[in-house]
């Protein structure tokens, strides 16, 4: 089985890092994983999209995904081009702190999570994407929360390890803010390996 996740936001929100963390977490969980990021030259403010595919066998999907099982929407700015790439009934986690605009709540399973506000409340305003990936892990179980924490630590370069503790709090806060496994990605949590 293959599960796809599309992430969209503006540069600087941590979209690429969140995709990396989910990718590493999936590897920790013993699953096959593919991550592909496309972002404009600007580090901040430009479009920042990423694709993650996790599978319990070799991945068949190409790195540019046309039909996704789920999405993380950190901001509405580059949201519109992503809509046609979502399967009917796709799981969408929405950053309700910032999102403005229309979303078809009939066709999609939308979970509103105010991750930017939550991150600010945690004293970690740059950690919104970490809160979001914790929430995503909680809702879907695509990766285990513990694997997400470990994947986050592996994703931080040595000179950013001081952020690890705050990021861990963000991930766990996100996971606790949602209904656990409301839309499970797998029939059983964790793969055999």
């Amino acid at each position: 089985m293959e599960r796809e996740l599309l992430l969209t936001g503006v540069g600087g929100q941590g979209v690429q890092l969140a995709a990396q963390v989910i990718g590493r977490a999936a590897a920790i969980d013993g699953r096959s994983v593919m991550v592909f990021g496309l972002y404009s030259g600007m580090m901040r403010g430009g479009s920042s999209d990423s694709t993650v595919v996790v599978a319990d066998g070799p991945i068949q999907a190409p790195p540019i995904v046309s039909h996704s099982w789920s999405a993380i929407v950190m901001h509405h700015k580059y949201w519109a081009p992503m809509v046609p790439k979502l399967r009917p009934g796709a799981v969408v986690l929405l950053n309700s702190s910032l999102f403005e605009g229309d979303i078809d709540r009939q066709a999609l399973q939308v979970f509103d999570v105010p991750v930017t506000d939550m991150a600010a409340d945690l004293g970690n305003p740059m950690g919104a994407a970490m809160v979001m990936l914790g929430a995503y892990a909680g809702v879907t179980g695509l990766v285990r929360v513990e694997a997400a924490v470990q994947g986050m630590r592996e994703s931080l370069p040595p000179y950013r390890q001081q952020h690890a503790a705050a990021n861990e709090r963000a991930i766990r806060a996100g996971a606790q803010a949602v209904e656990q496994l409301a839309t499970p990605a797998w029939e059983t949590a964790g793969a055999d390996a």
Partner: peptide, 9 residues
């Protein structure tokens, strides 16, 4: 480009 910038485990 895809091969260079796609990550896999």
């Amino acid at each position: 480009y895809l091969l260079a910038h796609t990550a896999e485990a």
